[in-house]
């Protein structure tokens, strides 16, 4: 029982937190997209560069989402 409650709290906490979630998904996305970038660049990049590049790509997407929020709810800024 105690363990279940503990898991529940973790789950609720997880839902409440925004940035850790974004961070987690960014890392997962990096893992998923890295092979595609590796393929597109024709293997000229090493693993670290690929991961960095994917992270930059994800940052760009996040910025784009942020800009959409600004466009639709400019009052908040």
């Amino acid at each position: 029982m105690l363990k279940l409650e503990f898991l529940e709290t973790i789950l609720i906490r997880f839902r409440q937190q925004r940035w850790p979630k974004v961070f987690l998904f960014a890392l997962l996305g990096t893992l998923l997209l890295a092979p595609a970038v590796q393929a597109a660049t024709g293997g000229t990049l090493d693993r670290g560069q690929t991961f960095a590049l994917v992270l930059l790509g994800i940052t760009t997407v996040l910025l784009s989402i942020y800009l959409f929020v600004v466009i639709f709810q400019p009052e908040r800024f």
Binding site: Q49, A52, L53, L63
Partner: peptide, 29 residues
């Protein structure tokens, strides 16, 4: 910075360029 969309992008850009200053090969040769 996040309150000013245009400058926020510049701010993020500065951080990225700072990283490639430290390691120019970070995002590609």
């Amino acid at each position: 910075q996040v309150k000013n969309p245009v400058m926020f992008l510049v701010w993020v850009g500065t951080i990225v360029t700072a990283l490639v200053t430290i390691n120019p090969n970070l995002l590609g040769n």
